[in-house]
Design a binder for these strands. Structure first.
Lengths: 198, 198
DNA sequence: GGCATGCATTGATGTATGGTAAGAAATTCA
DNA sequence: TGAATTTCTTACCATACATCAATGCATGCC
């Protein structure tokens, strides 16, 4: 079977060698979540990072008005977690849920410790991922501060063309911080302009 | 001279011992920037983190429309840096500038390496700071996605009461993602409601 | 196949925030 | 201290996006 994506990921992205891989690979477990199933609920402490073997996840918060705000999507070869909750051992502020039937690899602190001990390259890669995460959050803040709904949407489809097809529109709207109706109008407007350019 | 804040910070916050402190403290340099002076410009690679001994800094971007968006403030005992630029050795997307005459301690990678080698506690603290940074960015995204201008402002003055007094209003507005005019109106509205409660 | 359910679109209208412009207040600096 | 400059406020109007409600369009399900 299994975890082929994860293994490939460790080798080609994190630079873990074949030999190291064998020593590391006692540990991680995989698990299947059905569409709509929760991987993490608000108030729970997040004990894992989830590596997506196959499928699609989202994380989101619910505000005092009862509105969902999508924080992040994760499809194949992406990680999903609440780093803060995991690191500080605090109840999480958000939910993680499967958008499609999804196979994930459960990564706990012990695995990361072990892998980092065995493979210096992995440790380095992990650090790098953390920095990348910050860069990504920074960029998102910038877009939310400055860009119109249309620009944010264009940025999204440019960055995540695959997700644009797999994720329901109302979730994309939620990620962008607008209503589904507004997104529909933005799309209409874009379509119009593309058919009759300039 | 001094760097008293920085030393105190290392001891009481990062848990560095007196003895370790002496071994570490060959290195860091301090520098004074005048009000309005730039510590980092867009396009430059950020080689330092700046620890604020005394004074006040801001980091900001300028979008295609020429509008500033303030990313972060840093007053006494805070760090300011472009982590992404420093880590990836890439040109920075943003500017760092002194809002007041400001004394900073220049922290480069070598210092952090050295301090982390000498003091395990420092290494740990550094990791913790990184995670905190992520948590902070996450929270900001959430506010930008969901909260009104008023709520964002209330959150700001609650979190940074000291800054509210020291920072010009138009900069707070920029941080919140609204215009100075709008912030002025929000404040007026709040004042009205506070004088005639409920 | 028919019906329920969830999602997308559309139109009418509401609201929060933006833009502009002018003057008041505060701060800076010679 | 007074003039220059910056910041803040206010009023009026413009706009982007939200809200509400109706309809259309799939999809899944018994």
């Amino acid at each position: 079977m299994v975890l082929q994506n994860f293994k490939t990921y460790l080798q080609s992205r994190a630079g873990v060698t074949e030999e190291e891989l064998h020593r590391i690979f006692e540990i991680p477990q995989s698990k299947i979540f059905e569409k709509g199933e929760a991987l993490l609920n608000k108030g729970d402490v997040c004990h894992h990072a989830f590596f997506v073997e196959k499928g699609l996840l989202r994380s989101y918060t619910i505000d005092e008005m009862g509105k969902e705000h999508i924080i992040q999507f994760a499809s194949e070869n992406w990680f999903m977690s609440d780093r803060s909750s995991a690191y500080f051992n605090e109840p999480s502020d958000f939910y993680i849920e499967a958008i499609e039937d999804t196979t994930v690899v459960l990564i706990d602190k012990e695995f990361i410790e072990l892998a980092a001990t065995i493979s210096a390259s992995f440790r380095q890669y992990n650090e790098r991922a953390l920095q990348n995460h910050i860069r990504h959050l920074q960029k998102r803040i910038n877009l939310l501060l400055g860009a119109t709904a249309e620009k944010r949407y264009l940025d999204f489809i440019n960055l995540y063309p695959d997700l644009t097809l797999r994720v329901p529109q109302w979730m994309i709207a939620s990620y962008l911080g607008i209503t589904p109706e507004s997104l529909s109008r933005v799309r209409k407007e874009l379509a119009k302009r593309n058919f009759k350019p300039h």
